[in-house]
Amino acid sequence: MGYLASMRIWRGNSADGQLEEHKVEVGDGEVVLDVIHRLQATQTPDLAVRWNCKAGKCGSCSVEINGKPRLMCMTRMNTFAEDETVTVTPLRAFPVIKDLVTDVSFNYQKAREIPAFKGPENLKPGEYRMAQVDVQRSQEFRKCIECFLCQDTCHVIRDHEENKPQFAGPRFFIRIAELDMHPLDQLNRTKAAQEEHGLGMCNITKCCTDVCPEHIKITDNAIIPMKERVVDKKYDPLVWLGNTISRRKSD
Protein backbone atom coordinates (compact mmCIF):
# COMPACT_ATOMS: atom_id res chain seq x y z
CA MET A 1 0.00 0.00 0.00
CA GLY A 2 1.16 3.52 -0.73
CA TYR A 3 -0.25 5.92 1.82
CA LEU A 4 -3.26 6.81 3.95
CA ALA A 5 -5.49 9.31 2.13
CA SER A 6 -7.90 11.75 3.74
CA MET A 7 -11.24 11.33 2.03
CA ARG A 8 -14.31 13.47 2.63
CA ILE A 9 -17.41 11.70 1.37
CA TRP A 10 -20.93 13.08 1.25
CA ARG A 11 -23.38 10.74 2.98
CA GLY A 12 -27.11 11.28 3.09
CA ASN A 13 -30.31 11.30 1.10
CA SER A 14 -32.69 13.85 -0.40
CA ALA A 15 -33.79 15.03 3.05
CA ASP A 16 -30.42 15.61 4.67
CA GLY A 17 -26.77 14.73 4.58
CA GLN A 18 -23.24 15.74 5.49
CA LEU A 19 -19.61 15.32 4.54
CA GLU A 20 -17.88 12.55 6.50
CA GLU A 21 -14.12 12.22 6.86
CA HIS A 22 -12.33 8.90 6.48
CA LYS A 23 -8.74 7.72 6.27
CA VAL A 24 -8.35 5.16 3.52
CA GLU A 25 -5.34 3.29 2.22
CA VAL A 26 -4.30 4.06 -1.35
CA GLY A 27 -2.17 1.80 -3.52
CA ASP A 28 0.03 2.61 -6.49
CA GLY A 29 -1.84 3.45 -9.66
CA GLU A 30 -5.24 3.51 -8.00
CA VAL A 31 -8.14 5.70 -8.99
CA VAL A 32 -10.76 7.34 -6.78
CA LEU A 33 -13.21 4.51 -7.46
CA ASP A 34 -10.70 1.99 -6.02
CA VAL A 35 -10.49 4.04 -2.85
CA ILE A 36 -14.26 4.33 -2.61
CA HIS A 37 -14.54 0.55 -3.00
CA ARG A 38 -11.94 0.03 -0.26
CA LEU A 39 -13.84 2.42 1.96
CA GLN A 40 -17.02 0.46 1.26
CA ALA A 41 -15.27 -2.85 1.98
CA THR A 42 -13.55 -1.81 5.20
CA GLN A 43 -15.44 1.04 6.88
CA THR A 44 -18.79 1.98 5.35
CA PRO A 45 -20.51 -1.11 3.93
CA ASP A 46 -23.72 0.82 3.35
CA LEU A 47 -22.09 3.53 1.20
CA ALA A 48 -24.15 3.85 -2.00
CA VAL A 49 -22.13 4.30 -5.17
CA ARG A 50 -23.05 3.68 -8.81
CA TRP A 51 -20.36 2.13 -11.01
CA ASN A 52 -20.00 -0.46 -13.71
CA CYS A 53 -17.18 -0.77 -16.25
CA LYS A 54 -14.32 0.88 -14.35
CA ALA A 55 -12.83 1.80 -17.71
CA GLY A 56 -14.34 5.19 -18.50
CA LYS A 57 -16.79 3.80 -21.01
CA CYS A 58 -20.07 3.21 -19.20
CA GLY A 59 -20.54 6.68 -17.69
CA SER A 60 -21.90 5.33 -14.40
CA CYS A 61 -19.47 6.60 -11.77
CA SER A 62 -20.01 10.32 -12.30
CA VAL A 63 -19.51 12.37 -9.14
CA GLU A 64 -17.86 15.63 -8.15
CA ILE A 65 -14.31 15.36 -6.90
CA ASN A 66 -12.96 18.44 -5.16
CA GLY A 67 -15.87 20.32 -6.66
CA LYS A 68 -15.28 19.24 -10.26
CA PRO A 69 -17.60 16.89 -12.15
CA ARG A 70 -15.54 13.80 -12.99
CA LEU A 71 -15.62 10.04 -13.46
CA MET A 72 -14.27 8.26 -10.37
CA CYS A 73 -12.75 5.52 -12.47
CA MET A 74 -10.76 7.98 -14.56
CA THR A 75 -9.43 10.14 -11.75
CA ARG A 76 -6.09 8.89 -10.52
CA MET A 77 -5.23 9.39 -6.88
CA ASN A 78 -1.70 10.47 -7.81
CA THR A 79 -3.17 13.68 -9.24
CA PHE A 80 -3.72 14.76 -5.62
CA ALA A 81 -1.04 15.50 -3.04
CA GLU A 82 -0.76 12.78 -0.39
CA ASP A 83 -1.65 15.24 2.37
CA GLU A 84 -4.59 16.69 0.42
CA THR A 85 -8.14 15.98 1.50
CA VAL A 86 -10.11 14.62 -1.44
CA THR A 87 -13.79 15.54 -1.32
CA VAL A 88 -16.28 13.35 -3.19
CA THR A 89 -19.92 14.42 -3.51
CA PRO A 90 -22.81 13.35 -5.70
CA LEU A 91 -23.64 15.34 -8.84
CA ARG A 92 -25.11 18.63 -7.65
CA ALA A 93 -27.43 19.36 -10.57
CA PHE A 94 -29.68 16.35 -9.95
CA PRO A 95 -31.72 15.06 -7.01
CA VAL A 96 -29.76 12.76 -4.74
CA ILE A 97 -31.05 9.26 -4.00
CA LYS A 98 -28.47 8.10 -1.48
CA ASP A 99 -24.85 9.05 -0.79
CA LEU A 100 -23.07 9.31 -4.15
CA VAL A 101 -26.00 8.13 -6.25
CA THR A 102 -28.21 10.68 -7.98
CA ASP A 103 -31.43 10.44 -9.93
CA VAL A 104 -30.49 11.35 -13.50
CA SER A 105 -33.91 10.63 -14.99
CA PHE A 106 -34.12 14.28 -16.11
CA ASN A 107 -31.77 13.25 -18.90
CA TYR A 108 -33.87 10.29 -19.97
CA GLN A 109 -36.88 12.57 -20.17
CA LYS A 110 -34.93 14.99 -22.37
CA ALA A 111 -33.76 12.11 -24.57
CA ARG A 112 -37.36 11.09 -25.18
CA GLU A 113 -38.23 14.63 -26.28
CA ILE A 114 -35.87 14.44 -29.28
CA PRO A 115 -37.39 12.66 -32.28
CA ALA A 116 -35.31 9.78 -33.60
CA PHE A 117 -33.56 9.78 -36.97
CA LYS A 118 -36.04 9.98 -39.82
CA GLY A 119 -34.75 8.83 -43.17
CA PRO A 120 -36.14 9.65 -46.62
CA GLU A 121 -39.58 8.20 -47.35
CA ASN A 122 -38.42 6.55 -50.56
CA LEU A 123 -35.63 4.58 -48.89
CA LYS A 124 -35.95 1.62 -46.59
CA PRO A 125 -33.46 0.89 -43.82
CA GLY A 126 -30.60 -0.94 -45.49
CA GLU A 127 -30.84 1.17 -48.61
CA TYR A 128 -29.17 4.22 -47.11
CA ARG A 129 -25.98 5.14 -48.95
CA MET A 130 -23.78 7.94 -47.65
CA ALA A 131 -20.26 9.13 -48.34
CA GLN A 132 -17.92 8.75 -45.36
CA VAL A 133 -17.05 12.43 -45.63
CA ASP A 134 -20.71 13.28 -45.01
CA VAL A 135 -21.12 11.26 -41.84
CA GLN A 136 -17.73 11.60 -40.20
CA ARG A 137 -18.44 15.05 -38.83
CA SER A 138 -21.20 13.80 -36.56
CA GLN A 139 -19.38 10.61 -35.59
CA GLU A 140 -17.52 12.56 -32.92
CA PHE A 141 -20.81 12.94 -31.08
CA ARG A 142 -21.39 9.18 -31.10
CA LYS A 143 -18.51 8.86 -28.63
CA CYS A 144 -20.79 10.19 -25.88
CA ILE A 145 -20.98 7.70 -22.98
CA GLU A 146 -23.88 9.50 -21.32
CA CYS A 147 -22.09 10.14 -18.06
CA PHE A 148 -24.06 13.41 -17.84
CA LEU A 149 -21.09 15.34 -16.47
CA CYS A 150 -21.80 18.02 -19.08
CA GLN A 151 -25.39 18.21 -17.92
CA ASP A 152 -24.23 18.43 -14.32
CA THR A 153 -21.79 21.25 -14.88
CA CYS A 154 -24.04 23.31 -17.16
CA HIS A 155 -24.97 26.36 -15.09
CA VAL A 156 -28.24 26.85 -17.00
CA ILE A 157 -29.78 24.01 -15.03
CA ARG A 158 -27.23 23.49 -12.27
CA ASP A 159 -27.81 27.01 -10.93
CA HIS A 160 -31.42 27.42 -12.07
CA GLU A 161 -33.74 24.53 -11.36
CA GLU A 162 -36.58 26.44 -13.03
CA ASN A 163 -34.84 26.17 -16.42
CA LYS A 164 -35.01 22.40 -16.54
CA PRO A 165 -38.35 22.11 -18.38
CA GLN A 166 -37.23 24.30 -21.30
CA PHE A 167 -33.55 23.37 -21.57
CA ALA A 168 -32.28 20.08 -22.95
CA GLY A 169 -28.61 20.57 -22.05
CA PRO A 170 -25.32 19.98 -23.86
CA ARG A 171 -25.62 16.19 -24.09
CA PHE A 172 -28.78 16.61 -26.12
CA PHE A 173 -27.48 19.49 -28.17
CA ILE A 174 -24.83 17.12 -29.52
CA ARG A 175 -27.59 14.60 -30.22
CA ILE A 176 -29.55 17.25 -32.12
CA ALA A 177 -26.41 18.38 -33.96
CA GLU A 178 -25.58 14.79 -34.86
CA LEU A 179 -29.02 14.36 -36.43
CA ASP A 180 -29.09 17.80 -38.03
CA MET A 181 -25.72 17.18 -39.69
CA HIS A 182 -26.79 13.73 -40.85
CA PRO A 183 -27.05 13.78 -44.66
CA LEU A 184 -30.27 11.74 -44.75
CA ASP A 185 -32.21 13.05 -41.76
CA GLN A 186 -35.41 14.73 -42.90
CA LEU A 187 -36.59 16.63 -39.82
CA ASN A 188 -36.13 20.33 -39.12
CA ARG A 189 -33.88 20.06 -36.07
CA THR A 190 -32.68 23.66 -36.11
CA LYS A 191 -36.02 25.24 -35.34
CA ALA A 192 -36.74 22.71 -32.61
CA ALA A 193 -33.31 23.21 -31.07
CA GLN A 194 -34.02 26.90 -30.52
CA GLU A 195 -37.71 26.87 -29.77
CA GLU A 196 -38.22 23.58 -27.94
CA HIS A 197 -34.86 22.57 -26.51
CA GLY A 198 -33.54 25.94 -25.32
CA LEU A 199 -30.39 26.31 -27.42
CA GLY A 200 -30.61 30.09 -27.01
CA MET A 201 -30.16 29.75 -23.27
CA CYS A 202 -26.64 28.41 -23.71
CA ASN A 203 -24.11 31.21 -23.29
CA ILE A 204 -21.26 29.06 -24.57
CA THR A 205 -19.13 29.24 -21.44
CA LYS A 206 -17.77 25.82 -22.42
CA CYS A 207 -17.93 24.02 -19.09
CA CYS A 208 -19.53 21.06 -20.87
CA THR A 209 -16.48 20.75 -23.11
CA ASP A 210 -14.13 21.13 -20.15
CA VAL A 211 -15.59 18.17 -18.25
CA CYS A 212 -16.27 15.74 -21.12
CA PRO A 213 -14.28 12.54 -20.45
CA GLU A 214 -14.52 11.63 -24.14
CA HIS A 215 -13.05 15.03 -25.10
CA ILE A 216 -15.95 15.78 -27.43
CA LYS A 217 -15.72 19.41 -28.50
CA ILE A 218 -19.33 19.97 -27.50
CA THR A 219 -19.32 23.75 -27.76
CA ASP A 220 -17.14 24.29 -30.83
CA ASN A 221 -18.38 21.38 -32.92
CA ALA A 222 -22.03 21.05 -31.91
CA ILE A 223 -23.50 23.99 -30.00
CA ILE A 224 -21.91 26.86 -31.94
CA PRO A 225 -22.57 25.27 -35.36
CA MET A 226 -26.18 24.75 -34.26
CA LYS A 227 -26.39 28.38 -33.11
CA GLU A 228 -25.09 29.46 -36.51
CA ARG A 229 -27.73 27.31 -38.21
CA VAL A 230 -30.36 28.95 -36.01
CA VAL A 231 -29.09 32.37 -37.13
CA ASP A 232 -29.52 31.19 -40.73
CA LYS A 233 -33.09 30.17 -40.12
CA LYS A 234 -34.24 32.83 -37.72
CA TYR A 235 -32.11 35.95 -37.40
CA ASP A 236 -30.16 36.60 -40.60
CA PRO A 237 -32.19 38.82 -42.97
CA LEU A 238 -29.87 38.24 -45.93
CA VAL A 239 -30.12 34.47 -45.64
CA TRP A 240 -33.87 34.83 -45.36
CA LEU A 241 -33.92 36.99 -48.49
CA GLY A 242 -31.67 34.54 -50.34
CA ASN A 243 -33.94 31.64 -49.43
CA THR A 244 -37.07 33.62 -50.29
CA ILE A 245 -35.96 34.51 -53.80
CA SER A 246 -34.42 31.04 -54.20
CA ARG A 247 -30.97 32.33 -54.88
CA ARG A 248 -29.42 30.34 -52.09
CA LYS A 249 -28.68 26.72 -52.82
CA SER A 250 -29.82 24.13 -50.33
CA ASP A 251 -27.25 22.11 -48.43
Binding site: S14, E64, G67, K68, R92, P95, R158, H160, E161
Partner: peptide
Amino acid sequence: ENGVGAPGRAKIGVRHLRTDK
Protein backbone atom coordinates in the same frame (compact mmCIF):
# COMPACT_ATOMS: atom_id res chain seq x y z
CA GLU B 1 -32.77 27.56 -2.21
CA ASN B 2 -32.31 27.57 -5.95
CA GLY B 3 -29.61 25.94 -8.03
CA VAL B 4 -27.28 23.66 -6.09
CA GLY B 5 -29.40 24.30 -3.02
CA ALA B 6 -32.68 23.27 -4.67
CA PRO B 7 -34.90 20.80 -2.81
CA GLY B 8 -33.94 17.19 -3.41
CA ARG B 9 -30.32 17.89 -4.28
CA ALA B 10 -27.48 16.92 -1.94
CA LYS B 11 -27.42 19.41 0.94
CA ILE B 12 -23.86 20.66 0.95
CA GLY B 13 -24.40 24.28 1.89
CA VAL B 14 -21.59 25.95 -0.06
CA ARG B 15 -21.50 27.45 -3.56
CA HIS B 16 -18.67 25.19 -4.64
CA LEU B 17 -16.08 22.77 -3.35
CA ARG B 18 -13.32 23.56 -5.80
CA THR B 19 -9.88 23.66 -4.24
CA ASP B 20 -7.90 24.87 -7.27
CA LYS B 21 -7.29 28.53 -8.15
